[in-house]
Write a protein that binds this DNA or RNA. Structure first.
Lengths: 187, 187, 187, 187
DNA sequence: CTCTAATCGAGACGGTACGTCGCGTCTTACG
DNA sequence: CGTAAGACGCGACGTACCGTCTCGATTAGAG
């Protein structure tokens, strides 16, 4: 058996869904979401316009699915390292993964998907914070989470706009690490 | 007197323009810009729909004017203090002003205008950075500016969503100060 | 002998077909054909949407079969009497049959099926006229046939909209007879 | 003054409205209303699709306006004569008018507009009947009106499908007269 | 009594028309 | 004679049905 549950998803659905994701990603590289029409996405995906709605209620929904997917993948990558309390290594892992998919993440972080990506990362961060955050702090936990996510996004987005190789993975990981550590410093 | 030389602006234009600004601000308190239609703005402002276009090409243009105005006002307030190298006092002044116009700034920072406000603040910050920034730093200047603006926005936006008086002006100014100082620390 | 050999129709087909006929009839009592969707018919009949097309190409086709059936039954009833040249009795037979199935014929004559019913009756009437019609007449035969059918329909449809028993079978048969006779009067 | 009431209808509205009427009439000569799409009407009229809805809610509404117009014009023509109790002359007038606009009336009576035309004529006939109809009659007044309208339509529709000149105006008027008289005969 | 072939359920999909909404331009008639 | 009011072109929206197409699952009736 190829997987424990044979949930039997229609192959056509999978195909269409992938086509939509790819199409949206491609378009996001060129313009923000609000300038992309559903008609356009469908055309690029090679499916009929009305078929789009059989998969997603709005283009934002499609984007959300996309964003959640990617963020989950990214976080899954660095959580194990984080659990070993080695934040530095976690950031290196993260940056390496992103650097390996520069085109994709450029679209995700600097294009029209940024908002959705941010929301998804916020959601996850809040979960993590609920477990690990200290009670007393010079900055309220909730705000600290927002700031962390913001700094992460700013840094990655900035990095991705730079010419590749201009800043090494280690350098960026170092910056990220320092930024995040600063926020969790006591006093 | 400033009358004879200056620009002879038709009183009706001024009135219409103010009505539009006020209308947009009012609407922004309730929903993001993309959900606001020009027809709506015009209706609230009490002017005819097509008249809107004689003042602004798009609703985004109107918002930009609004945002630039307010940011300029805010910055003008704290620049003098900054020039005395007392960043702490500058943040207190800033927070005081914002706290005095909580409703307005809630709309500007947490509503649909946030993007435009951010852009405007970024623009100004880059100018300031060009003059004052150190050459060598653990974090590239350009990125530092982005982070500074981000942190400022996150903090203020978060503050404005809290119940008034939950966090004192001084406390918030302190947080802002610490965040910004962190970014400019050497090493 | 066409019975034992011929056509062994699958019991499932018969069942589905009857369900469709009944469903359409039921719907026709409430609204005209064009407001009835195939999905609706299928739902009422308790069969799957796509199964409909395995029986009829369009909903109009289903209706035509229905209409032809009923008209044939009606005509078969009065033809024998007509052959005895007793038009009066033929109309009484016709009206009696219709009165006995008031609900059904209301749907057929005043609902969305009216057009199909009319077409079918026209078809049959033209056949009859071809055999029995006089050559010379104050009104062209073709037109006379149209008028006959029209008058029949108007009268029956009107009758069926009246409260039952408001007009007796004999009275209506009398009216029908007079109308039709008038058209065939010489001079 | 060019007209007693200066209702001042925008010239563009008039133009568009006429274009729509003409377009629909043209299309009705070729196929029934239900096979005509609003998009088609708009295209033929040379206006944008969405503009159609600024004039009529549905294509049926447009047709109704058309039908009412024409029927009113037709009736206005023969009412004066009818008032002089000369039904024969009234029918001649009617047939003459129709014969002079054969193409138009073919579309109206044998095309997709027939239903609307019929409704409109029925409406007017019922008004006339309310004033002139006898109480006691071998056929109920309401039914008689229906039959009259039906016979009129059948006759005219049939006439219009015949080659022009195949049946003279007088001949058709004679038939119409006889049919209608029959219905009003006592006994 | 099985086996084979049809009917039927299920539903994804391409497609056409619908009617709505908002944009921005351009015309008009009114003060 | 300039400006408000608004008709219009335009294009995306989301919806409803249409009819086609594969799949499997029954299930009937012939061998």
């Amino acid at each position: 058996m190829d997987s424990e549950v044979s949930s039997k998803v229609d192959a056509r659905i999978v195909k269409t869904d992938e086509a939509l994701r790819t199409a949206l990603l491609g378009l996001l590289e060129r313009k923000p979401l609000e300038q992309i029409t559903i008609r356009e996405i469908a055309a690029v995906a090679g499916i009929h316009y009305t078929t789009f709605f059989r998969h997603h209620a709005t283009k934002e929904a499609l984007l959300d699915h996309l964003a959640a997917d990617q963020i989950d993948r990214l976080v899954a990558l660095c959580m194990p390292v984080l659990d070993q309390l080695d934040s530095r290594a976690a950031f290196v892992a993260q940056c390496t993964y992103i650097n390996d998919h520069r085109k994709l993440w450029s679209a995700l972080l600097t294009g029209g998907a940024a908002g959705a990506m941010r929301e998804e990362l916020l959601r996850l961060s809040r979960e993590v914070a609920r477990e690990r955050a200290p009670k007393e702090h010079w900055i309220p936990v909730e705000l600290a989470v927002n700031c962390t996510v913001s700094l992460t996004f700013e840094t990655l987005a900035w990095w991705l706009t730079q010419p590749a190789e201009a800043f090494s993975i280690e350098k960026v990981a170092e910056i990220l690490n320092r930024l995040v550590v600063m926020l969790s410093m006591p006093l």
